[in-house]
């Protein structure tokens, strides 16, 4: 068990892959935005990669541990300290009962992850401990954690202190505020014409501050996107705007053309709606969405379904004990 002394900006319990199986009722998967850093935080302390841990957004929390355990912090650099002493990211530490772990604001990236040996053991809700903060479900009492709460954790005796993630296995954040993120064409890429696809892939898209775990708004040349004939001459029940389509299921990670504004549908995003999704961010590119900050620039690079699946497999291999060595 640990106590929340200070919650940070919006820190919530997540697990991976989250709440799968309820898409047909409108429940999003939730779970960590940067699944790469999240899984490695768990692996560092001896947990399973998908176990419940904390996602900290932009400003991290202060926690006090009520028993001896092992912790690790990964992801963006939130300047973690144990009892006032700075600690390294990508490394597991033994902590004693009564010690505090304090994170500050993210000096690099956007999200930090804290794993605790034995993992967080709140009551699962619809099969998962992931928090869907906006809807008030999952996690601890449905919301991001709050100061004063006591968060239950499992048996810490299997904790693995003093391990580090080898440098090659750590995600790399760009130093120039420019990101290249993989996309796979579809499901509705044929609603854009060739010039429209080119415009989309060649443009610089700036991440808007009006972005959160439900959707990432992109600022750029949305009004210069051009459409195929099927988007213009279509049955009235689609709706008359070119990006309007008869309501359909949305892949998580889809880049939704809402009117002419691209919105990437992220972990707490909608399951259905009536706008086209010309491209989808696959698993291998999705972790980057967890670390890109508002104001930074994204360019998309199209890859095939096969390539996306190969990269995801490679990432799962990396998010394992294979990537650890003793400190």
């Amino acid at each position: 068990m640990f106590e929340v002394m200070n919650a940070g900006l919006e820190t919530a319990i997540q697990d991976y892959p989250g709440r799968v199986g309820y898409w047909n009722q409108g429940f999003p998967p939730s779970g960590p935005m940067d699944h790469w850093s999240f899984r490695l935080a768990n692996v560092l302390v001896g947990n399973e990669p998908g176990d419940a841990a904390l996602e900290c957004q932009f400003t991290g929390p202060e926690l006090r541990f009520h028993e001896d355990t092992v912790v690790a912090v990964t992801g963006g650099d939130m300047q973690p300290h144990i009892d006032g002493e700075p600690i390294e990211l990508w490394r597991s530490y033994a902590v004693k009962a009564g010690q505090t772990l304090k994170l500050s604001y993210a000096k690099t990236g956007a999200r930090g992850y804290i794993a605790v040996a034995g993992a967080i053991r709140t009551e699962p809700w619809l099969g998962s401990r992931a928090t869907f903060h906006k809807a008030g479900v999952g996690g601890f009492e449905g919301r991001a954690i709050q100061a004063g709460q006591q968060i239950p954790t499992g048996d810490a005796s299997g904790g693995t202190p003093d391990m580090v993630v080898i440098p090659e296995a750590r995600p790399e954040l760009p130093s120039d505020k420019r990101w290249e993120i993989e996309v796979v064409a579809g499901p509705n890429d044929d609603w854009l014409d060739e010039a429209g696809v080119r415009t989309f892939l060649e443009a610089d898209w700036k991440l808007s501050a009006k972005s959160d775990r439900t959707g990432y708004r992109l600022e750029g040349p949305g009004d210069r996107l051009t459409f195929a004939d099927k988007a213009i001459n279509k049955r009235p029940e689609h709706g008359s705007e070119p990006s309007n389509i008869i309501d359909q299921g949305y892949p998580n990670g889809a880049i939704n053309l809402a009117g002419l504004t691209p919105i990437i549908l992220v972990k707490d995003g909608p399951s259905m709606g009536g706008f086209i999704n010309p491209f989808t961010v696959p698993t291998s590119g999705f972790w980057k969405l967890g670390q890109v900050r508002p104001g930074e620039v994204i360019r998309f690079r199209a890859i095939s379904v096969d390539e996306a699946q190969r990269l995801a497999r490679e990432m799962t291999r990396i998010c394992s004990r294979e990537s650890l060595r003793p400190a």
């Binding site: 796979v184 892949p251 889809a254 989808t280």
Partner: peptide, 12 residues
Amino acid sequence: FLPGGDRYMLIE
């Protein structure tokens, strides 16, 4: 049968 990233298929 339309792909959506590495884990989804939309059947229209």
